[in-house]
């Protein structure tokens, strides 16, 4: 059974058809990348999966359960988690407190402290723990938010441009982080423009164009697909 299944998903904003009959299914344990030119509807698709937007028609199934009508927080309880495109950390709170807020509903007391320490080490943010999250570098903010997202121990992790604004080294480290999580059994769906990252981690790639699934396959198949190159180039020359 697929972990996530989108069936004939549609979303209109006025006359704009942002999500057009999208069918997509994620197998448990895969790292799946979602690519496509700007305006292809990638982030909207995330918002539909998370329940921030509601589809005009179609269904969203998570682990066999229809979650289309559920509120966002209820979907998180089912095992979804997300890192947003713009880092969504709690800027005015310390790094440590950011993690505490993410972890406190599953752990208490000494166990909570231990878990925060473990996560700080995993993210390489031990020496920044007393810093205000707003003072972190862009890359560190991204990691902190990934840390908050994975602290929920999700079955499916949604990453919206996890490496945006990162140096090539940071991008590579993020890729390794994602692979380590995947080895631990986490399914990952990532929106990403950085093809180096996609090559590094993706087991399957879906190309979205004008709100529709344009192509799907392994990274080699997608790179070899001339139609995919055309829509990217077309976009660039427009």
């Amino acid at each position: 059974m697929s972990l996530l299944e989108l069936r004939e998903l549609n979303k209109h904003f006025g006359g704009l058809h942002v999500t057009n009959a999208v069918n997509l299914s994620l197998e448990p344990g895969e790292i799946h990348c979602l690519i496509g030119p700007n305006g292809a509807g990638k982030s909207t698709l995330f918002r539909l999966i998370l329940g921030e937007h509601h589809p005009g028609s179609g269904d969203i199934l998570f682990a066999g359960e229809n979650i289309t009508a559920l509120k966002s927080f209820a979907r998180i309880h089912r095992g979804l988690s997300v890192k947003f495109q713009v880092p969504g950390v709690f800027k005015g709170l310390s790094v440590r407190q950011n993690l505490e807020i993410a972890l406190q509903s599953r752990h208490r007391g000494a166990e909570l402290e231990a878990e925060i320490g473990r996560l700080l080490t995993f993210l390489g943010l031990e020496s920044e723990q007393a810093q205000m999250a707003g003072n972190l570098s862009h890359g560190q903010k991204q990691w902190l938010e990934i840390g908050m997202a994975i602290s929920l121990k999700p079955r499916l992790l949604l990453l919206d441009e996890p490496t945006a604004g990162m140096s090539p080294e940071e991008t590579h480290m993020t890729g390794e982080m994602v692979q380590r999580l995947n080895v631990g059994g986490m399914t990952v769906l990532a929106i990403e423009h950085d093809m180096a990252f996609v090559r590094q981690v993706a087991q399957r790639v879906t190309v979205l164009h004008l709100g529709q699934v344009f192509a799907q396959g392994s990274i080699q198949e997608i790179v070899a697909d001339e139609r995919v190159a055309a829509i990217y180039l077309g976009q660039a020359h427009a």
């Binding site: 927080f73 709170l93 908050m148």
Partner: peptide, 16 residues
């Protein structure tokens, strides 16, 4: 305070 800082993030950590 998490809701004050970023309500969307707070909700996406599973808080109603």
């Amino acid at each position: 305070v998490a809701i004050r800082e970023n309500p969307e993030r707070a909700e996406m950590l599973g808080y109603d």
